[in-house]
C-alpha cells in the first residue's frame, strides 16, 4: 500500500515537474518575432530622443502615443506620427505573434497587458507614461 502511495506521489511529482518546466518559458524565438524585434530596435534610435523630450509617452495598453508634439522641432514633427503608428503596428503584431507562437491566440490581450506594465517599469527616468487619466513622469 505504501508503495502504491509512493508511486502515486512520484507520478504526481513527475507530472507537476513537467508542467512547471513547460510553463517556465514562452516561445519567443520565431522568425516573425525576430523580424519585429529587429524593426523595433532600429526604430528605437529615432524614438529615444522623443521619449526623453516628453514628445511621446508609453500608454497603459502597451502602445505609445504622441503626448506633446510641440516638444519636437518643426522639421521633425512630420516623422513623429509616422514613427508612432509604425511602432504601434509592430507592437500589436508582436503581441499577436507571441500569442500564436505559443498556440494560444487568445492570450494576445494578456500578453499586451503584461508588456504594458513591463515597458513602463523599464522606462528611463524622465520618460512619460499614462497613469490614470493623464500622463506621469518617471
Amino acid at each position: 500500500m505504501k508503495k502504491l502511495l509512493l508511486s502515486l506521489f512520484v507520478i504526481v511529482s513527475i507530472l507537476t515537474a513537467n508542467w512547471v518546466a513547460a510553463a517556465a518559458d514562452l516561445e519567443v524565438n520565431t522568425p516573425a518575432i525576430a523580424a519585429l524585434k529587429a524593426s523595433m530596435q532600429a526604430r528605437h534610435g529615432q524614438l529615444s530622443p522623443f521619449y526623453s523630450a516628453g514628445a511621446i509617452g508609453l500608454t497603459k495598453d502597451g502602445m505609445i502615443a504622441v503626448k506633446d508634439a510641440t516638444a519636437v522641432p518643426l522639421s521633425q514633427r512630420g516623422s513623429l506620427s509616422g514613427l508612432v503608428s509604425a511602432e504601434n503596428a509592430d507592437r500589436a503584431n508582436l503581441y499577436k505573434e507571441i500569442a500564436t507562437a505559443n498556440g494560444h491566440a487568445e492570450w494576445q490581450g494578456d500578453i499586451q497587458n503584461t508588456f504594458a506594465g513591463r515597458w513602463i517599469d523599464k522606462a528611463q527616468s524622465g520618460w512619460f507614461y499614462q497613469s490614470g487619466g493623464g500622463w506621469a513622469k518617471k
Binding site: W19, A22, A23, A24, D25, L26, V28, I33, K37, M40, Q41, H44, L94, I98, H104, W107, D110, I111, T114, F115, G117, R118, W119, K122
Partner: peptide, 24 residues
Amino acid sequence: INIYFPAAAAEKAADKIIDEVWQL
C-alpha cells in the same frame, strides 16, 4: 492550470524582448 495565461513566463518573455528592443 496549464491552459491559464502563464503570467510569470510572459513577464520574463516581455523583459527579454524589451531588453533587446531598448538595448538594455
